[in-house]
């Protein structure tokens, strides 16, 4: 089996190196693959390292279902200096005295940032304003009004501190800006601050431990079965195993019935598995345990 067939239709957990964009990593993998569809389930800033999910072939259809998975980050923060980009890549725009801050103070304010709250996205972000990414405007020195977005942070934990530097672990939903959080934590302590390093260690059930470094894609050819197949990639969703005729019906747009022993609630997403164990589609549970088809996967 050639590398294309080994890597196509897979979710490939990649440990992105520092200094390259998510798209650089995708381009490098695409070269190994030699063609086909490729995408990702959530990008990571160039200065950050850690887990990104690269999707190939039919797995590109799963992007929306992987994007919303909770993520865990390890973030390094420096007290005493704020920068225009909120991270170490920017210019220092404010300095302040951090000496009076203790690790206890930090632990004291962290709970304020957990749970649901509104966060103002930074000017240096890929969010669009009138069709243009904000960071392009920011580089020209412009500032525009932005809407605060709801973010959900499950937990924040202080891992270590060697003040003015400290390190936190954050578990959060899609949309939280860690750079902005770094500045917010300082502000709540009354000190300017910025993020000096960021590593994404997990996305849902995907862990950085199983990821291949973006600098070592040439090692993929030595692996028996690299990456994760679509059915396994959605293992956070309950499964509905289809019979042969049900799998044929799904291709014609008819959803399988959800077995009575599968506990589901309205609005929940389920994955439809075909008799060979592959992912046939994704459904959403409606009233009366009837699944509505959200997506059908057509294998070539």
């Amino acid at each position: 089996m050639n590398l294309y067939h080994k890597l196509n239709n897979k979710v490939i957990p990649v440990n992105k190196e520092k200094g390259i964009t998510t798209f650089d990593a995708i381009r490098k993998l695409k070269r190994e693959l030699g063609g086909g569809k490729i995408g990702h389930a959530g990008s990571l800033d160039p200065i950050a390292t850690g887990l990104i999910l690269i999707l190939t072939g039919i797995a590109t259809k799963l992007s929306g279902y992987l994007m919303d998975l909770p993520k865990v980050y390890i973030s390094d923060i420096k007290l005493g200096e704020a920068t225009d980009t909120q991270d170490a890549s920017g210019e220092v725009i404010e300095r302040g005295d951090w000496e009076k801050i203790s690790t206890g103070d930090i632990e004291g304010v962290l709970p304020r940032f957990t749970g649901k709250r509104m966060q103002m996205p930074p000017m240096y972000s890929a969010l669009k304003h009138g069709g243009k990414p904000l960071y392009k405007l920011a580089r020209k020195g412009k500032k525009v009004d932005r809407k605060a977005r709801e973010v959900h942070t499950e937990s924040i934990e202080l891992l270590s501190a060697d003040l003015p530097l400290f390190r936190i672990r954050v578990k959060c939903s899609r949309g939280l800006y860690l750079r902005t959080l770094s500045e917010e934590i300082g502000r709540s302590l009354g000190v300017p601050s910025h993020m000096t390093g960021l590593t994404r260690v997990s996305v849902g059930h995907f862990d950085i431990e199983e990821a291949i470094s973006s600098g070592e894609f040439d090692r993929l050819k030595d692996k028996e079965d690299p990456g994760i197949n679509p059915a396994e990639a959605l293992r956070h969703l309950k499964q509905v195993v289809m019979s042969g005729p049900q799998a044929a019906d799904l291709l014609n747009g008819r959803a399988p019935t959800v077995p009575v022993d599968t506990e589901v609630s309205v609005g929940e997403l389920v994955r439809f598995l075909r008799p060979d164990g592959s992912l046939g589609g994704i459904g959403e549970i409606g009233p009366g345990r009837i699944a509505r088809i959200r997506r059908v996967l057509i294998y070539e």
């Binding site: 042969g244 799998a247 044929a248 291709l251 075909r274 008799p275 060979d276 164990g277 592959s278 046939g280 057509i298 294998y299």
Partner: peptide, 9 residues
């Protein structure tokens, strides 16, 4: 047919 429907064999 096996591949398109995703049958077991």
């Amino acid at each position: 047919t096996r591949r398109e429907i995703g049958l077991s064999s």
